[in-house]
Amino acid sequence: MGVVIDAHLVVRRGAFTLDLALTAAPGEVVALLGPNGAGKTTALRALAGLTPLSEGHLHVDGEPWHDRPAERRAVGVVFQDLLLFPHLSALENVAFGPRCQGVRRREARRLAAEWLDRVGLADQAARRPRTLSGGQAQRVALARALAVRPRLLLLDEPLSALDAHTRLTVRAGLRRHLAAFDGVAVLVTHDALDAMALADRLVVIEDGAVVQEGTPAHVARHPRTDYVARLVGLNLYRGTARGHSVALPGDTVTFNAAEALDGEVFLAFPPSAVALFRTRPDGSPRNLWEATVGGIEPHADQIRIHLEGPVPAAADVTPAALAELRLTEGDRVWAAVKAAETHAYPA
């Protein structure tokens, strides 16, 4: 089938420039991931035709789309606030797109009913959006976007408005519908879990430019920016490798990594791999450094300790270990990390 989308989106607005190259194959789900203000939503609006391109192009199925207004693009959009028309019922919301495409009223309503059934809301067809729960409204919005048979499905923070429990079920449903969708789905999110769970490929944007791209598994293990590292919960450093040995700038600490490389590398390890000691442990001086306790906070069923000093890091310890160490903010500690959990990859 080949490529569905071939895009080079350039949007300039004041001092901000979005410059994003994007290709995707049929059936692929791409997540645009990035901090607030990175340009994710701008990219989505540019794909939808709601924001004009300053430069670049957008081809979908080989056809140029960049000159088409939104209403002539086969897109379906699930907006962040859903934007279900408040004066129309769930059914009429879903039938709106088909009606605009010239489908007769009766047929459009039948199609809409079918879509509502598919998202499990057949019995809510007559309800107005404001009487629906968050999860139901989200599913109506998805049905409305899919009912126009789009080639490009765009989802802007599709789960952000939902509470944690609803999120779980809606995410599962969304995953099923995305799997069944034969066009390209582009998902904008700042939530790593949503991105990992839903996308085949992550594209990380910071300040309007792509900083990292890859499968969720790859990105999760090989973050290349602090933002991504924080997102996937890893400590990330840059250093110089010689074989298994990786020296951080200024030779503060030297790590032993699982991989043998040469030259500039990224070094990453999870907070759970860090062990803390009150006194300097015996043995190899490698993978060992002294730090100051900067902050202590609960993190899932662990305690996360933020370490400050030349090698800032996050360390997760059990509550029992914390009690034993009797740590408070400002204490000096020694931190050690296992070589087997320390990964290096080329920068």
Binding site: R45, L50, A70, V148, L154
Partner: peptide, 11 residues
Amino acid sequence: RYEDAAATLGA
């Protein structure tokens, strides 16, 4: 934004 939504639905 409701008008944006309508436009993406082909209106």
